[in-house]
């Protein structure tokens, strides 16, 4: 795996500069059922396509930011700090 990622603070860097934070998911707003909790903790969509995900600029400013990436091609559509992220699928 190798591609470039643009940190909203620092600019474009090799992906090895960053930590992957997994696909953006939503924390249940209120107490989930056992099944919902299980799904929330252990299940991921693992999309073959565009997904919204978290990245951490581990070797840089250490900020967390959101990205949309096509998991098939590693083409990154956008990156943004959570406050600036385009509407759509809301992060947790």
């Amino acid at each position: 795996m190798s591609f470039l990622l643009t940190c909203p603070n620092c600019g474009t860097r090799e992906v090895t500069d960053f930590g992957f934070g997994g696909e953006a998911s939503t924390r249940p707003a209120s107490r989930p059922s056992a099944r919902e909790l299980n799904t929330y903790i252990y299940f991921r969509r693992n999309a073959a396509g565009v997904q919204r995900e978290w990245w951490h600029h581990r070797s840089g400013c250490r900020a967390w930011f959101l990205a949309e990436r096509d998991t098939r091609t590693n083409h990154v559509i956008w990156t943004a700090l959570p406050a600036d992220a385009p509407a759509g699928q809301t992060p947790a």
Partner: peptide, 10 residues
């Protein structure tokens, strides 16, 4: 730190 800052951001 990563976990704390992530939740803080979230």
């Amino acid at each position: 730190e990563q976990s704390f800052t992530w939740w803080l951001e979230t």
